[in-house]
Design a protein around this nucleic acid. Structure first.
Lengths: 136, 136
DNA sequence: TTGCGTGCAAAGGTTTTGCATGGCA
DNA sequence: TGCCATGCAAAACCTTTGCACGCAA
């Protein structure tokens, strides 16, 4: 639906390479900027934000609003994870740990929200807040 | 556990009165400040934030991080609502609407998270992101 | 009188934006 | 050459903080 013309630039490449290397973990925009600077890479802050945003739109990246005041959290998921391998996130409010969940049962809640409340929940965007095992 | 000595002030009264009048809906700190100003009430911005924070701590108010960039959302629940009357929230990513949900079935997901994943989800803090009926 | 509460203004931190320049196709 | 992408700096925004004064108990 969106036949965007886009150029291949050095900055995009650098960024995506980094993101891929961090697959399975999460990171903030600030961390990326810091890392880039430490590596002597030339990629400006606004470019990082702009690229991140479009990658989120493309579904290659997930963005989590972990907290109102702290920076947004991103996670590389790649293009292949379409539909299958849904991933949920739980954030411990005490220790700050972000837990990844791969769970079939969670899909039920999605269905219930859809059928019972006409709301299509997006697991990529939703974070469950609460307390982890250690912090309870 | 916290025998705080606290004074009763005019500002607290004004604020709580307003919050009570908004019971059942949600509001941001900014909206409160704006309303107060329009009413000619004397209550400073920092006071609003500070009172809001302590009310959240007391459990009288719920705070939702609806989005990373937009302001935090508050909801008056009062002291009596302990345990019963759990309330869930869905945020439409397209139109921005925040939907309140009072649903028993949603508790199941909480139980599953607790028993299956040792994670105690807090519905007061969790917001489900997705698309509402109109925006789908 | 004691010390919590308040207000103002400034700082803090993240994210967005305007505008001129750079570089892909 | 046309147009998207980038960088810099500044702006925008929400929220927090420092400090002196006010006011409840």
């Amino acid at each position: 639906m969106n036949t965007k013309t886009s150029y291949k630039t050095k900055q995009k490449e650098i960024l995506v390479n980094y993101l891929v290397s961090k697959k399975g973990t999460h990171f903030t925009a600030g961390e990326i900027c810091e890392y880039m600077k430490s590596q002597g890479e030339t990629i400006g802050q606004s470019t990082v934000y702009r690229r991140l945003e479009s990658l989120v739109d493309e579904g290659i990246l997930n963005k989590y609003t972990v907290d109102g005041t702290s920076p947004a959290c991103f996670e590389y998921v790649g293009e292949e994870s379409h539909g299958e391998e849904v991933c949920y996130h739980c954030k411990c409010e005490k220790c700050g740990k972000l837990i990844h969940l791969h769970c079939e049962e969670m899909k039920e809640i999605q269905e219930h929200l859809l059928k019972g409340h006409q709301f299509m929940m997006d697991p990529k965007r939703t974070v469950f807040y609460g307390l982890c095992e250690q912090c309870r």
